[in-house]
């Protein structure tokens, strides 16, 4: 075989392997989604949203779990967003090139991809043990710790996209630094920062591991944030592992709900990002 034929052959081989890899990857992912839709839709009905999680062997809904997940997600977002935004502001506006900022940025990136089950252990140690019981608050704090690094990262990135000339123009008018940040930088970067918050919410919407040792689970309706609370991910975990067909069906229903929520949040975040003033 001549050198040209060999090169052409190698090229064809590598390219077809690449196409095959793509087909292979896409097939599995489509299979996962298809099963999810197929099984999930047979579980979704009005009952799912109006009844509580049932005892073993009978049918019911996921109302208390949906409520618990919503409450903890909202609480975690309310705790995590301001914290993350202010820390991100420090990194982007005050510490450009500073040593302390470098360290915070590095640590934040580690936190961003640290195993979420470790966060659960941490919150167990600092909240569940001292309080003596599992609680929705502990779950919310665990989720907030997952929100914070995402928001820090996007806030910093988005503020860095704001052109310095805008800040200089405001400063030249005698505006104090904090006003420049709040009235100019934030306004210019607001869509991007909101995108970060939406991505963070999408991330905690399906997060299971940190809730196992913090919010635990609750078979009944509860609005007490100081007590264990039902939540979709842990209910899915428990029900899917059970031998009861009714419970397994509910697990699929819950899984579909979570996936739809996550996909909507992600698509929403993308749309929002495409409208933002300054793009990466």
């Amino acid at each position: 075989m001549g050198i040209y034929a060999r090169r052409r052959f190698v090229n064809a081989l590598v390219m077809s392997l690449s196409v095959a890899a793509t087909a292979f990857g896409v097939v599995w992912l489509v299979l996962v989604l298809w099963t999810l839709l197929y099984q999930g839709f047979s579980a979704i009905g009005p009952v799912l949203f109006t009844q509580m999680t049932p005892p073993p062997g009978s049918s019911g809904g996921l109302l208390n779990a949906i409520f618990g997940s919503l409450v903890m997600t909202v609480a975690a977002t309310l705790i995590g967003t301001p914290t993350g935004m202010l820390a991100g502001t420090f990194l982007a506006e005050y510490s450009r090139g500073g040593r302390f900022g470098e360290i915070v940025r590095f640590i934040n990136d580690i936190l961003l991809s640290a195993p979420s089950i470790i966060v659960g252990l941490f919150v167990y140690e600092i909240m569940v043990v001292p309080m003596g019981h599992f609680s929705a608050w502990a779950g919310a704090v665990a989720l907030a710790i997952i929100v914070i690094p995402v928001v820090v990262r996007t806030t910093e990135d988005m503020l860095n996209l704001v052109p310095n000339t805008l800040r200089e123009a405001a400063s030249a008018l005698g505006t104090p630094r904090w006003k420049v940040i709040v009235m100019v930088s934030y306004r210019a970067a607001v869509q991007g920062m909101l995108t970060g918050v939406m991505l963070a919410v999408a991330r905690i919407a399906g997060e299971t591991a940190p809730l196992l040792f913090t919010a635990l689970n609750n078979q009944f309706w509860s609005t007490n944030l100081n007590a264990p609370i039902a939540n979709l991910p842990v209910v899915i975990f428990q029900f899917a592992m059970s031998p009861y067909a009714d419970w397994q069906l509910l697990a699929w229903g819950g899984a579909l709900l979570i996936t739809i929520t996550v996909l909507f949040l992600n698509i929403g975040a993308r749309l929002l990002a495409s409208w933002s003033t300054f793009k990466p």
Binding site: V32, A205, I236, A240, A255, I258
Partner: peptide, 9 residues
């Protein structure tokens, strides 16, 4: 972005 619990079940 799909949560890992989905892959699990």
């Amino acid at each position: 972005a799909i949560p890992s619990i989905i892959y699990g079940i």
